[in-house]
Design a protein around this nucleic acid. Sequence first.
DNA 1: GTCTATACTTCGATAGAC
DNA 2: GTCTATCGAAGTATAGAC
Lengths: 193, 193
Amino acid sequence: MSSTRRIGAEDSESRAALLDAAERLILTDGYAAVTSRKVAAEAGLKPQLVHYYFRTMDELFVELFRRRAEDGLVRQAQVLESPRPLRALWEFSNQPTGSAFAMEFAALANHRKDIRAEIGRFAEALRAQQLEIMTEVFERYAVDVTSYPAVTLLVLMTSVSRLLVMEERLGMSTGHAETRALVERLIDQFEPS
Amino acid sequence: MSSTRRIGAEDSESRAALLDAAERLILTDGYAAVTSRKVAAEAGLKPQLVHYYFRTMDELFVELFRRRAEDGLVRQAQVLESPRPLRALWEFSNQPTGSAFAMEFAALANHRKDIRAEIGRFAEALRAQQLEIMTEVFERYAVDVTSYPAVTLLVLMTSVSRLLVMEERLGMSTGHAETRALVERLIDQFEPS
DNA sequence: GTCTATACTTCGATAGAC
DNA sequence: GTCTATCGAAGTATAGAC
C-alpha cells in the first residue's frame, strides 16, 4: 500500500516556500489553481519538488490547512480575551482572508473525503473554543440565554460575515451596509463603543 | 479571434443530456469534477461532443448556471406569493441543493472571471426580487423598518441557511438546532404556525 | 538530504469524416 | 446537423541521479 518513496525534511526551506506559494494561490485563484506545476512556478521551483515534500496533493492541502488552523486557534483565543469580546470576534470574523480561506477549504472538502474529516474536526474545535468564552461573556452581560443561547450568536455572526465576504467577491453589495449596521447596533447594546 | 468551428443546435437532445449530466456532477462531486470527459461519461456520450455543443467549458458552466438561475427566479416568485412569505422564503432557502449549487458556483466564479460577472448579476436580480416582496410584507406586518430594514432580514436568512447547509456537509452540527429554533421563533412572531 | 529525468493519465480543444 | 480521430498542454506521481 504505502509507497516507499522518500520524503523531504519538514523544516526544509523549499517545503515552506511551496506551502507559502500554495497559500497565495488558493487565496487569489481558488483551490482548483493549486496544482503541482502552478505551486512550483509560484515558488520558483521545479514541479517535481512538490511531490518530494508531499506524497500527494491532498497531503499538501491538509498541511496547508493545519498550518492556518493552528494559527487561527491561537489568534482567536487572544481575540476572545479582549475587554470587548463580542466586538473583537465580529472584527475577527470579518477579515476577508480568513473567510476566503474557510470557503475554499469547504468547497475543496466537498469532493475530497480525506480532507473533509480534517476540516470538520478543526471547525468544531474552533467553535467550541468560541462557545466557551461566549457563554462566560453572556453570563457577564446577563443575556437571557434561554431565548438567546450563546451558540446562536456565534452561528449568526459567522454566517453573516461569511456571506458578506463571499458576495463582495462576486461584486455584490445589496443590503451589506444595512446588515453590518444592524450587527454593530446589536453589539453596541452590550459593548458601547 | 473567435473560432470558426461549428456548434450544435440548442434544442439537441445530446446537448440537454450533457447539461443534465453536468448538473448531477457539480452537485455530487463539486465543480472540479465537471470535466469534458466526465460529463460525457455521465451522459453516456463521447467526450468530443461536449466541445461540439459548447465552445469552451466556461460556456457550458454559464449555460448550466443560466438554466438553474431562470428556474430559481420563477420558483422564488411563486414562493414569495404564498400566504406566509417569511416562512416560505426560509424553507426555500433551506433546500440543500439550492445552497450547494450556489456555493459551487461562488467557488467557481472565484477563478473564472467570465463566469463571475454572470453570477453576480443574477444573484443581485434574485435579491432585488426578494426585496420588492419583503418590503411590502414588512409594511403589512408593521415592522419598524428604520431599525430593521427588510433587506437585512433577507441577508440574515440567506446567511444562516447557507452556512448551516455548508457546515452540515462537513459533518458539523454545533449550534445548528438552536439557531434554526431561534429563526423559527422569530418568524412565528409575524406568521404564527 | 535535495533535486531531476521521466512515465503515465487526463484535460481542453480542433479539424475533418459522416 | 451530428459525431470521431487526434493533438498538444497540463496534471499527478515515481524512480533514480547528485
